[in-house]
C-alpha cells in the first residue's frame, strides 16, 4: 500500500474523508509557475513558440476529435451501402455495389474539388505570379476573443509568417506561427487583428479591427466628417505590405455617431467564417 493511501480508503470506496487536501504550498508554487508562464507569454510571446511546436505533438489528439465525424460518416455509408446492396442483389449483385462505392468516393472527391476550385476562383489575384497553397483545417479553438485556426501544411513549402489566408468568402486571417506540419492563423475576428482596408464606393482608407468571434468588427478612429456608407464593401488596401491588395473582407452594416466620442462608430460584418470551411488558401508571397 502506498504511503499516501489512508487506511480508511481501503475499507470503502466512499470513505475518503481522511485524505488530506492539496498542500497550500504546492498550490502557491503552481500559481506562481502559471503566472510566470502568463507573463512570459504576454511579454515575449513564449506561448506562440510552444504552440507551434506542440501542434505537431498533439496532432494525434486533434485527429481523435475527428472520430465522431468519421463514425457518423462510416455508419451513414454502411447503412446506405446495405440498402443499396439489397436493391442491387436483385439486379447485378456485387458488381453494382462496387460501382456504387466508387461513385460515393467520386462524389466526395468532386465535392472537395468543387470547394478547391471555388476557393481558387475566389482569389482576386494573378495566379501566375502568386503562389497559393491549399490547406485543410486541423482545428479551430472556441476562444471568443482570440480564436485560433490551425491548418495542416507540408513542411517543405514556402510559407512564412504573415502570409494571408483566404477562403472563398474572402480574407480569413494571416499566418502567425509555423510548425513542422501546421500553421497557426490569426483570424480577422481576433481582437489583436488590425487590417488596412479601403472602401469600395467612397475609396476611403481605414484600419479594421476584430472584436471577437461571432461579433462585428469596427473601423478605428474614423473622423465624423468621413463619408462611409452602409452596405459598402471593404477590401484590403495592401498598405503595410502584409495583405495583398483587393481581398474582400466584409461590409459596413452600421454607422453611428456617439455623442461622447470624437470618432464615428462603424461596424463591419465579416464575410468569412472559418467554422463552416474545410479548405483554405494560403497566399505565399
Amino acid at each position: 500500500m502506498l504511503k499516501r493511501e489512508h487506511k480508511v480508503s481501503n475499507i470503502s470506496s466512499e470513505a475518503i474523508f481522511a485524505i488530506p487536501a492539496m498542500k497550500p504550498s504546492r498550490v502557491v508554487i503552481a500559481v506562481i509557475f502559471c503566472l510566470f508562464l502568463m507573463l512570459t507569454d504576454v511579454r515575449y510571446e513564449s506561448g506562440s513558440y510552444l504552440r507551434s511546436v506542440s501542434y505537431d505533438l498533439i496532432k494525434p489528439l486533434t485527429l481523435l476529435t475527428r472520430i465522431p465525424n468519421y463514425l457518423f460518416e462510416v455508419s451513414t455509408v454502411f447503412f446506405t451501402s446495405r440498402q443499396s446492396l439489397v436493391e442491387k442483389v436483385e439486379l447485378l449483385e456485387r458488381e453494382n455495389f462496387k460501382l456504387e462505392a466508387i461513385n460515393n468516393s467520386l462524389d466526395k472527391l468532386s465535392i472537395d474539388l468543387r470547394k478547391i476550385n471555388s476557393l481558387r476562383s475566389s482569389a482576386n489575384l494573378d495566379l501566375d505570379e502568386e503562389l497559393f497553397l491549399i490547406s485543410k483545417k486541423n482545428f479551430l479553438s472556441s476562444n471568443e476573443y482570440q480564436p485560433l485556426l490551425v491548418l495542416d501544411v507540408d513542411h517543405d513549402n514556402n510559407l512564412t509568417i504573415n502570409n494571408a489566408v483566404l477562403s472563398e468568402e474572402g480574407l480569413v486571417g494571416r499566418v502567425t506561427n509555423l510548425g513542422f506540419l501546421s500553421a497557426e492563423v490569426m483570424l480577422v475576428q481576433d481582437v489583436r487583428s488590425s487590417i488596412p482596408i479601403i472602401s469600395s464606393e467612397s475609396s476611403l482608407h481605414a484600419s479594421l479591427k476584430g472584436m471577437g468571434l461571432g461579433r462585428k468588427g469596427e473601423l478605428n478612429f474614423i473622423k465624423k466628417t468621413a463619408s462611409f456608407r452602409e452596405g459598402e464593401k471593404l477590401f484590403t488596401s495592401g498598405l503595410g505590405d502584409v495583405f495583398p491588395q483587393g481581398l474582400l473582407v466584409g461590409e459596413i452594416v452600421s454607422i453611428s455617431d456617439p455623442v461622447d466620442s470624437e470618432f464615428l462608430k462603424i461596424e463591419i460584418s465579416f464575410f468569412s467564417s472559418p467554422i463552416n470551411q474545410d479548405y483554405f488558401l494560403i497566399h505565399a508571397k
Binding site: R4, E5, H6, S9, I16, I19, A21, M22, R26, V27, A30, F33, C34, L35, F36, L37, M38, T40, D41, V42, S46, G47, L50, R51, S54, Y55, I58, L61, T62, F139, S141, S142, N143, Q146, P147, L148, E184
Partner: peptide, 26 residues
C-alpha cells in the same frame, strides 16, 4: 483527492491553453 491533484490540474490546464490559443498558463 489522493489520485488527482495539482499536477493533473496544471497539466490539463496547459494542454487546454495550447489547444485554445489563450494566454499560456491562464
Amino acid at each position: 483527492p489522493d489520485k488527482v491533484g495539482i499536477f493533473e490540474a496544471l497539466l490539463f490546464g496547459l494542454i487546454m491553453d495550447l489547444l485554445n490559443g489563450s494566454v499560456f498558463g491562464l
